[in-house]
Design a protein around this nucleic acid. Structure first.
Lengths: 150, 150
DNA sequence: ACATTACATTTGTATATACAAATATTGTAC
DNA sequence: GTACAATATTTGTATATACAAATGTAATGT
């Protein structure tokens, strides 16, 4: 769908504004797909990301600051996000014995199992999402996105 | 900043996953810029978009359904969003006399003035945001984004 | 040892987002 | 003209996001 169709206008926009709008619109439709996907597993995109970070720790516990640092949206409330995962039994949280200010968070068996269930389905969704692009186009997009971040 | 630096890992990711992650990360840094920008005017990105839609009506009142249809995030609560703009004096809301189920929303002088103040500054921000790309790269990005939406 | 500062997390509060249910009004079938 | 369906918006509720203030703990200087 072209930008003009979304905006219901044929006014020519300057390149910068056009790019910004195209980017936001594409992101909305893109992130909605992932939101819908995770809904069936009753977790949010952020909760999934935290579980993935914890799995990457390979058994080593992570404290809140470490998780926050690696999250895509750093401003969300990590304490309450972990609370949600605790209630669902996907993580364990204990106070760090060496430094009682810190907490140690690890992913549970149940959390690992959830990730294993999600993994192949998510791969499918990702493949499907970039389907409209050829391999070369997708590679170009990656380069442009990294450049855009500066 | 490269994807590996963000993820603090050198594991090679499949193209689809890499693209999805790159896209989300870039969008986060991108939309944060706009969020910060609008903060100084004490409105949200969505509120600004609604004001812009209303200005596009050129005096013709818009009802809620019309606004919602043209919004980028269609799922947000348009009634309460308009409430906020009402309190700030940027819009007026009256019940449509021909069909009392509908409401008629118009932008006020104060709302138009706000947009005129914001416009040039926003243009600057947009220019600055795509600065890392050459004109040709930005054009390519636009094409790829539209393709990606399908 | 005591006060001060730094650190790590939690809590409070305001707003935003998402979706379902409720309300009010209009249109339609009989 | 009354019941029922359709339309348009509002309200309720739950969760998510954003940021500041509060809490509890450890480190440092004197």
């Amino acid at each position: 769908m072209k930008l003009q169709d979304v905006l219901k206008s044929d006014v020519a926009l300057p390149l910068a504004k056009r790019t910004a709008l195209n980017f936001m619109i594409t992101n909305t439709s893109f992130s909605e797909k992932f939101l819908d996907f995770f809904k069936q597993y009753d977790i949010s995109t952020q909760q999934f990301n935290v579980l993935r970070i914890l799995r990457g720790q390979k058994g080593k516990p992570a404290n809140l600051a470490t998780i926050q640092e690696r999250m895509i949206h750093k401003n969300s409330n990590t304490t309450r996000l972990i609370d949600k995962l605790l209630v669902k039994g996907f993580v364990k949280r204990t106070i760090c014995p060496e430094n009682r200010r810190k907490v140690e968070i690890v992913i549970t068996e149940s959390g690992l199992y959830l990730l294993e269930t999600i993994d192949p389905k998510l791969n499918e969704l990702e493949e499907k999402a970039i389907q409209p692009l050829t391999t070369a186009e997708a590679e170009t997009l990656n380069i442009l996105l990294e450049k855009l971040r500066g």
